[in-house]
């Protein structure tokens, strides 16, 4: 007799997560939330091009949300942790599923982005920690001034090492999204011969927009396009 038993309640949630499809659904759902954040975050940050007042006003607006801000942060943190933890488990599963590797293996359909998801992910995670220390709490910023977001961005990016790290991490993020955005629809069961090719195009466009948008800021600072007024 088959050993499969499907129970109710807490067991049921555990069983859902236990399966390979359940884990991927968690990856996709949390990825979806994080994608939304990434886009919104970038759109907000692009206000740096509209000058110091505009950006600082936007930052104050977010701070003014109070408990709401913390709720959003909580959700995002939860998603990021789940996304990361599930990825870790999947990585272990991957190794379990093929204990003996091939002597020779060719990839004929896998894109560079798909192949590197498990590498780009943790690097982006590490970057995220640095990013929060750098611009949110200021612990990793040599000249951090609370509330002066515009100034912090400009002085932070004037350090070429920090900027290079930002650029690399954001390119990785774009690559991660290049595969991830399409993939999350597939994982949640959305695939149609008519719409999927368009969805894939949209995912690529999204990755390019986020990548270019985010990378442009440190470059703009380094080239003096942004922040010339800050001494």
């Amino acid at each position: 007799m088959s050993s499969i038993a499907i129970n109710g309640g807490a067991n049921r949630t555990a069983a859902f997560y236990e399966s390979v499809v359940g884990k991927k659904a968690v990856m996709a759902a949390t990825g979806f939330v994080l994608c939304g954040f990434v886009l919104g975050h970038m759109a907000g940050n692009l206000q740096v091009y509209q000058g110091e007042a505009k950006l600082n006003h936007y930052a104050a607006l977010l701070q003014g949300l109070g408990g709401g801000l913390w709720a959003i942060r909580g959700v995002l943190l939860l998603c990021a942790v789940l996304h990361g933890w599930t990825a870790f488990q999947l990585w272990r599963l991957k190794n379990d599923a093929r204990p003996q590797p091939y002597v020779k293996k060719a990839s004929i359909a896998t894109t560079y982005a798909a192949r590197t998801m498990l590498w780009s992910g943790p690097i982006i995670g590490a970057f995220l920690v640095y990013h929060i220390l750098h611009f949110t709490t200021g612990g990793a910023h040599p000249d951090f001034r609370a509330g002066e977001v515009y100034r912090n961005v400009v002085t932070g990016f004037r350090n070429p090492a920090a900027s290079v790290f930002y650029i690399i991490a954001n390119i990785l993020l774009a690559i991660h999204l290049y595969h991830g955005v399409w993939s999350m629809f597939q994982s949640l069961g959305v695939n149609h011969p008519q719409y999927t090719p368009k969805l894939k195009l949209l995912a690529k466009a999204y990755a390019w927009v986020v990548g270019l948008g985010n990378v442009s800021i440190p470059i703009a600072v380094l080239t003096g396009v942004v922040g010339a007024s800050v001494k």
């Binding site: 390979v20 499809v21 379990d96 599923a97 595969h179």
Partner: peptide
Amino acid sequence: TEEGFGYCTNTGE
């Protein structure tokens, strides 16, 4: 899952 197969990363391979 129980048989030890891995999960799908939508590579299309």
